[in-house]
């Protein structure tokens, strides 16, 4: 799985960090998402999928392989 984020669309909701703190973080100054790992291991895939579904800006895209 490859994770792609769109920092331009992100509204800093932090929902992704709540669900998958190993994969997502937020910038201090404006809360915009930061990707910690592009290719998360299999045990995190479920959490990452949930984050992508719940992100209110639909700023997380997944390429499943």
């Amino acid at each position: 799985m490859k994770v792609v984020i769109d920092q331009d669309k992100c509204v800093g909701a932090g929902q992704c960090v709540l669900l998958a703190p190993e994969v997502f973080d937020q910038r201090d100054e404006d809360g915009v998402v930061v990707l910690l790992q592009e290719n998360p291991p299999a045990e995190l895939h479920d959490a990452v999928r949930q984050a992508a579904q719940v992100c209110p800006a639909l700023a997380i895209e997944l390429a499943e392989s």
Binding site: G12, G14, V17, L18, Q26, R27, D28, E29, D30, G31
Partner: peptide, 11 residues
């Protein structure tokens, strides 16, 4: 108010 990370943690 312009404090996203702390706010998320306080949730």
């Amino acid at each position: 108010w312009n404090l996203p990370r702390d706010t998320r943690q306080l949730r």
